[in-house]
């Protein structure tokens, strides 16, 4: 590939980021101006200043995604072991594909009634539980290929030497699985971070995550704040990518 083609491709890839950043610092953009007439950092100061509730949405999104990712990673790691060593492992695993038959937003629509009955409708806990329904099965599928005979032998060795199940997890399994646990955690964090439809339906707008803010600002025709909220949504994944290079994403895609 020629250097020119490479640079052109990189330019194309960076265009949406530059465009959103441009709008986030713009103030007036009358037609047919190609660029905003005024530039200011005042929109970004709204986040730091705490007005518009954007700062709260950032914190809420971080808290929700961290909770979902931590719970789903931990639970799916533990549960996947019991599935992976079962003689009918494939049949059990096929259950994990169930949630993908539904689009998340349709799943939320069909489960609304149960969330109302349980008093979880429009609450942080309700949104967290609803997101678990799509992230937990993903985690189980992710870890299902992790468990193998070698790990089983290591576990049995710990027990032969007098160790408990807890010690086998703490001293052997978790340290061995550190890389896989981190990758799974980041992927589940992103699934939760990007979620809109299910969060909106189960949260009834009372759990205003950043994705809901983008939609709110678009509806209010406030494109500059919508662009700002978009930048805030994109920043953490880009930072993760920068830190981990492609590791987090690569394992998500490679067959």
């Amino acid at each position: 590939m020629s250097r020119f083609t490479k640079i052109a491709l990189i330019g194309l890839i960076l265009f949406p980021f530059a465009f959103l950043l441009m709008l986030s610092v713009g103030r007036q953009w009358p037609y047919p101006a190609v660029f905003p007439e005024q530039w200011a950092l005042s929109n970004w100061q709204l986040v730091l200043g705490g007005s518009e509730g954007l700062g709260n949405s950032v914190l809420l999104s971080v808290l929700l995604s961290l909770s979902v990712a931590t719970l789903s990673t931990g639970l799916s790691f533990w549960v996947s072991r019991h599935i992976a060593y079962h003689p009918k492992r494939e049949a059990w695993l096929s259950l994990a594909y169930f949630p993908y038959v539904f689009a998340p937003v349709i799943l939320a629509a069909c489960l609304q009634f149960f969330f109302i009955v349980a008093g979880l409708y429009g609450t942080f806990g309700g949104v967290l539980l609803a997101q678990l329904f799509i992230t937990f099965p993903y985690g189980v599928i992710f870890f299902s290929s992790f468990w193998n005979e070698r790990l089983r032998s290591m576990e049995e060795l710990v027990k032969t030497l007098g160790g408990s199940t807890l010690q086998a997890y703490a001293k052997v399994l978790v340290p061995v699985a550190k890389g896989a646990l981190m990758t799974c955690f980041f992927q589940l964090f992103l699934i939760s971070w990007f979620e809109y439809g299910l969060t909106n339906l189960i949260g009834v707008g009372k759990v205003p995550t950043l994705t809901l803010r983008v939609f709110q600002y678009v509806n209010e025709a406030n494109i500059f704040l919508a662009a700002l909220a978009s930048c805030l949504l994109i920043l953490p994944p880009v930072a993760l990518l920068w830190l981990n290079r492609a590791v987090v994403f690569r394992e998500r895609i490679v067959p």
Binding site: M1, P16, F17, F194, V214, V218, S230, L233, I234, R250
Partner: peptide, 26 residues
């Protein structure tokens, strides 16, 4: 390998709602 091996991952960090907003503005 090389520069593109990093940049090609960047679009994956754009959520669907942001992509929709971008397309609308574009």
């Amino acid at each position: 390998k090389g520069m593109l091996s990093f940049f090609i991952y960047l679009p994956l960090s754009i959520p669907a709602i942001v992509m929709a907003f971008f397309i609308f503005q574009l």
